[in-house]
Nucleic acid binder design. Structure first.
Length: 585
DNA sequence: GCCGTTTTCGGCCCGACTGTTTTCAGTCG
């Protein structure tokens, strides 16, 4: 294979194809390409690997990929492009994907801008708008031109998405304020926040009311509101203090479920649901499920799913990645319940870069209902945080023993275990000797350097780590930090299979900017039967709250309680840890 | 271009809103 493309890059190429066909007013192809792009982006395994393994036949197994698109992808890997794509590119602006993210600009308007004003990039667009050339175009006007300028401004300011960990507390606070506000019965978050997506574009909220005008007024009076952006009859768009856009929809109580379902999405899930309804001679919209003019269900989501012949599907897995098929077959996973974690297996303390003592972290963990923590400070080669060597870990062990003793005498049922976040060298060796690792209850290993090795080297590096008999967990396996650092190159399929073979657990690091593993990777791990651990990676007591975000990632990846190691009691965990790795189940 | 409780051809999700129109196309979620 001559060229390499990751799934995201392939998806974007297919999206460009979709836009191209849309511009040419070719029917149905745009949706087909769009759909293929979406499913490819959500694949846990690299498309290139699958192509190598099974050729185009293998690719055709992917939902929405047929013979034509499979062939295009094959050509893409062989030659770096394919004929039809090259043709499309000739007729489109270079930066068509960016241009179409500007609100109100879709394929057709972008095409007109390109053909009449030679707009190829965002800068071209801005110049054309400032020079008031856009308003003269057919189908455009002064208002559109102004909206485009505002759109460019918005794009530049807020193109980076927010972390769920930042948005969720705010969303809950708004819910709370509105629930007790005049004219409002219920206020429930919807959209990507309710699905607990790792990053959030905007915040959707469904409000029920008998007095919409009064409800709207209450919303406008919220103290977090910075600016009202749009006001409709039943919806209002506001800019919050932190510049996050919040889209509120006001509906009567009797259609609450339908509205919540509709605005929770995701879009693809809803499309599939409406198709299913259509196949049964029904119609699903944001006002309910209908047979002709008769409304069959609308008040609750459960009622709607039931009337469609389905069990309730949890918001986190409404991603159009097989949940509807599983629901029909009665094979939905029994998702990990929130609050099922009994311990946290990655905690840093003031012994290295944490801000609280072991005792303070233990106390904070106990208060939020945990039964144990593992203290896992950094090890010696991470010099910038004063990583611990064998001697330091020995001293720390004595402090932990004393603390456990005090807890016991005070009849407090809480256990502190000994661990470390052991640094992995470039060659996959560890920066502490086996003799030291052997003394610890839990050994987590993590990559903190050499992020840019090629895929083969990086994969072999981690495999070597997993083959070490003392390494229990790989921490934040891909090393990504959202918005700051790309994940390392890994053959994840191979890594996860090795994890299974060697009995090494994989971490779901719940720290909001890490979220690592991420959803699709968890799904693959669950499928392969790899043991997972959800950790906060807390560096201060408040960080323990991140665990909930990790639970959300696990749920989105279809994980059940049995897949997650730290749902075990401390005794059961210890038993598991003392077994030789290859006997751990 | 893809797909199959419509099954290898003939369909393909739904409604609101906006701005530009004078009846509707384009965009969005």
């Amino acid at each position: 294979m001559a060229k390499k493309f990751n799934n995201h890059e392939i998806a974007n190429i297919l999206r460009e194809m979709s836009i191209c066909y849309e511009m040419e007013r070719i029917a149905f192809k745009p949706a087909a390409y769009e759909r293929a792009a979406d499913t490819i982006e959500l694949q846990g395994e690299e498309i290139g690997e699958r192509l190598k393994r099974g050729g185009t036949k293998e690719l055709e197994k992917i939902e929405g990929v047929g013979p034509a698109i499979a062939k295009h992808i094959e050509e893409l890997f062989k030659h770096g492009s394919f004929r039809e794509y090259a043709r499309c590119r000739r007729n489109m602006p270079d930066d068509v994907l960016t241009l179409t993210t500007i609100p109100d600009l879709g394929p057709h308007k972008v095409r007109i801008l390109y053909e009449k004003l030679h707009v190829r990039t965002l800068n071209d667009l801005e110049r054309a708008a400032r020079e008031k050339r856009i308003r003269k175009l057919p189908g455009f006007g002064v208002k559109t031109e102004e909206k485009i300028l505002r759109g460019i401004d918005w794009f530049r300011k807020s193109s980076q998405r927010r972390l769920l960990g930042d948005v969720l507390p705010l969303a809950r606070s708004i819910e709370r304020h509105l629930k007790s506000a005049p004219g409002i019965k219920q206020a429930v978050m919807a959209g990507s926040v309710r699905r607990r997506q790792e990053t959030i574009g905007d915040f959707d909220l469904v409000v029920t009311s008998d007095q919409p005008a009064k409800a709207m007024a209450s919303i406008e009076r919220l103290k977090m509101v910075k600016k009202i952006l749009e006001r409709g009859r039943r919806n209002i768009v506001i800019q919050l203090e932190n510049d996050l856009t919040c889209d509120v929809i006001v509906v009567p109580n009797e259609s609450f479920g339908a509205a919540l379902q509709h605005f929770t999405g995701n879009k693809e899930h809803n499309v599939l649901l409406r198709k299913l309804a259509g196949a049964k001679g029904l119609k699903l919209n944001e006002y309910g499920l209908w047979r002709g003019k008769k409304r069959l269900a609308a008040k609750t989501e459960k009622e709607i799913y039931r009337a469609l012949g389905l069990p309730y599907i949890e918001p986190e897995i409404r991603l159009a990645t097989g949940e509807i098929e599983a629901a029909i077959a009665g094979k939905l996973p029994n998702l990990l319940p929130y609050g099922a974690l009994r311990g946290d297996l990655q905690i840093q303390t003031s012994w290295t870069d944490g801000l609280a003592t072991i005792e303070q972290m233990a106390e904070a963990a106990r208060i939020i209902g945990l039964e144990y923590i593992v203290v896992t400070d950094h090890t010696r080669s991470l010099a910038m945080v004063g990583g611990l060597d064998s001697k330091g870990l020995g001293a720390q062990a004595r402090e932990i023993d004393q603390l456990n003793h005090r807890l016991k005498t005070a009849k407090i049922k809480f256990t502190v275990l000994k661990g470390a976040e052991v640094n992995i060298f470039k060659d996959g060796s560890l920066d502490l000797p086996d003799a030291t690792l052997k003394k610890l209850d839990v050994v987590g290993a993590a990559i903190h350097s050499n992020f840019n090795l090629d895929k083969k080297t990086q994969t072999e590096r981690l495999i070597r780590v997993m083959k070490n008999q003392h390494v229990d967990i790989i921490y934040h396996p891909t090393g990504r930090i959202i918005g700051r650092r790309e994940p390392i190159e890994l053959d994840l399929d191979k890594i996860l299979r090795t994890a299974k073979e060697t009995g090494t657990a994989m971490e779901i690091n719940a720290s909001p900017d890490r979220s690592d593993l991420q959803t699709t990777q968890v799904r693959l791990a669950v499928k392969l039967g790899v043991k997972l651990v959800i950790n906060s990676d807390a560096h201060r007591p408040e960080h323990l709250r991140f665990l909930e975000l990790g639970e959300a990632i696990a749920r989105r990846g279809w994980a059940e309680k049995k897949n997650i190691l730290n749902t075990k009691s401390v005794q059961a965990l210890k038993t598991w840890l003392t077994k030789p790795k290859n006997q751990r189940r």
